[in-house]
């Protein structure tokens, strides 16, 4: 019962979030601010994780290809496709759910318990829209850029691993990452990214916005934000994959 109640509450919140903004110029400012705090600030972690992941995927593919009949370009191809299909969209989304989700929930939760949200409401501001919409827009537009960066850096990381270990020659790797490229995979990755960006920001905002109590509840809300956005991301990963790739 409770879960249905929560889902209903989530959608009511969303309807408030997507109400017509009071004053657009103020929203633009907020969006720029959120792109900075949610997007630009995540580039570092995305680069680090993607580089290492690309390297590991490449090495694992290489060491698991014991059959000499398998063509060596499969290593580059494997690295490229794993990055595009799963890693740069889903894994990065899960990591961002941890980083961005908890910060959104604790920011909104703190604003709730210190009555800053009430203060907005009293002024006649639609607090849900003012606080949450810029976050959603910022993430939905910026996360595809993060995914793109992740794909490029991941493949590059794989190539560096190839150079460093010599598991395969650099030429074969480069042939591999160009071989049988399916452009639709990029579309698939981007569609997932946009969905996940929406999930991370809206689910985390939901948990932060409705905090009751004090700092302990804010902490709990930020944990919940991470757990629930991750679960919803995994669920939608399955649904979207079935819809797009079947």
């Amino acid at each position: 019962m409770n879960i249905i109640y929560q889902i209903g509450k989530y959608f009511i919140l969303l309807s408030k979030v997507f109400a017509k903004p009071e004053k657009q110029s103020v929203y633009y400012k907020q969006i720029v601010k959120e792109i900075h705090s949610l997007g630009l600030n995540s580039i570092g972690i995305v680069i680090i994780i993607s580089a290492f992941m690309g390297a590991v995927i490449t090495l694992q593919t290489a060491y698991n290809m014991e059959n000499p009949l398998l063509p060596l370009y499969l290593i580059g191809l494997g690295c490229r496709d794993s990055m595009i299909l799963e890693f740069s969209s889903t894994m990065i989304a899960l990591i961002l759910a941890g980083k961005v989700g908890s910060s959104i929930a604790s920011e909104l939760g703190t604003m709730r318990v210190t009555e800053q949200i009430d203060a907005l409401e009293i002024m006649g501001v639609n607090s849900a829209s003012y606080l949450i919409l810029p976050k959603i827009i910022a993430a939905v537009f910026f996360n595809p850029i993060l995914t793109t960066i992740s794909i490029i850096v991941g493949v590059f990381g794989g190539w560096v691993a190839v150079l460093a270990t010599g598991v395969v020659s650099s030429e074969y790797f480069i042939i591999g990452i160009q071989y049988a490229f399916i452009p639709f995979y990029i579309t698939y990755a981007m569609v997932k990214t946009v969905f996940f960006a929406f999930i991370i920001t809206s689910v985390s905002s939901f948990h932060g916005y409705f905090v009751k109590g004090g700092s302990i509840e804010v902490g709990k809300a930020s944990t919940k934000a991470v757990v629930y956005s991750s679960i919803v991301i995994l669920l939608f990963n399955v649904i979207l994959t079935q819809l797009l790739l079947s």
Binding site: T114, E121, I122, G124
Partner: peptide, 20 residues
């Protein structure tokens, strides 16, 4: 309609509620 009236209302909260 509430919003319209609220713009004529000023409120000072017990804890200040300043935007931090």
């Amino acid at each position: 309609a509430k919003k319209k009236i609220r713009q004529k209302v000023g409120m000072m909260f017990q804890g200040g509620a300043l935007f931090d």
